[in-house]
Nucleic acid binder design. Structure first.
Length: 265
DNA sequence: AAGGTACCCAACCGCCTGGGC
DNA sequence: CGCCCAGGCGGTTGGGTACCT
């Protein structure tokens, strides 16, 4: 680092830095600066723009809030499905998961997981990353989200042209066949989640009626070996699982196409 | 109406990694 | 090779708010 940049850095550090919520003036300053100079070089931006913020803070504010393509509002059923599915693959890789949800930030997805998904796990008195909980999500939560998704005519319309261009691949057909051979009684989460509460404004009411079994019962009733065989921890098995039992009006191929569509684009 | 509680989410923190020197 | 810095990422916190009681 040169002497010049060092002294600039010292000045920057000595400057009284602002913290906490951003004001409208700060937002417009940041937007204006990025419009003129582009994203990146956040520390330089912080020094040059007149914002008394750290580069990190500027970056975060832009990426999580000010960027024009940020989506606002509740996550759709399809988005929730995708988060559940991708989290089961990759764990807490929020930024990676966010890449598959255009307009959604890693922070938003992380918040969704911590507030909604982990809440369900807490209610069940199990770890959100446990096989017991993932089984419950797959067998009870995801099918409902799929039903919600299938109710959306827009999604259905979007899926149709995709399917005509992207027929199911052989691996999917193979997985589906294997999954179909599994005895349905292996999915014991019904014992765990007779009525998985939906996230809504009256969660309290729903959760109040929900009486989770003790930990011991959960441990006995869910066989990890079958429910979470790695052979089924991919997109196609989820689709197979969800359409099982006529839970959804969607055919397997349609659902598979929808999920694949999200995975690709 | 007031107090308590739970939830949501923006923002911060600390750690890690990669690149430049 | 080692140091320093910027940027990125996941974890955590705290203020605001909605919802009970």
């Amino acid at each position: 680092m040169s002497d010049k940049s060092s002294s600039s850095s010292i000045k920057y550090q000595e400057m009284e830095l602002r913290r906490g919520p951003w004001t409208l003036e700060e937002d417009s300053l940041l937007i204006h600066y990025i419009a003129c100079h582009g994203e990146g070089r956040w520390n330089l931006l912080a020094r040059s723009s007149g914002l008394k913020r750290t580069g990190k803070s500027c970056r975060l504010r832009w990426l999580n809030y000010l960027k024009p393509d940020i989506k606002r509002g509740n996550l759709s059923a399809e988005e929730q499905l995708l988060i559940l599915e991708l989290h089961s693959k990759w764990g807490n890789r929020w930024s990676r998961i966010a890449q598959y949800l255009p307009g959604r930030t890693d922070n938003e997805i992380k918040n969704y997981w911590r507030t909604r998904v982990q809440k369900q796990a807490r209610q069940l008195r199990v770890d959100a990353n446990s096989s017991v909980f993932r089984d419950a999500v797959r067998c009870y939560w995801m099918p409902r989200l799929l039903d919600e998704a299938s109710a959306s005519a827009a999604i259905a319309a979007a899926a149709t042209p995709f399917l005509s261009q992207h027929p199911p691949d052989p691996q999917f057909l193979h997985d589906r066949q294997e999954f179909a051979q599994l005895p349905t009684e292996n999915c014991h989460s019904q014992v765990l989640i007779p009525h998985m509460p939906q996230s809504s404004s009256n969660d309290q009411d729903q959760l109040a009626r929900f009486d989770p079994p003790p930990m011991e019962a959960a441990a006995i009733t869910t066989p990890d070996d079958v429910s979470f065989d790695p052979a089924f921890s991919n997109c196609s098995d989820i689709v197979s699982d969800m359409t099982n039992g006529g839970q959804s009006e969607w055919g397997m191929d349609e659902l598979y196409g929808m999920l694949r569509g999200y995975m690709k684009y």
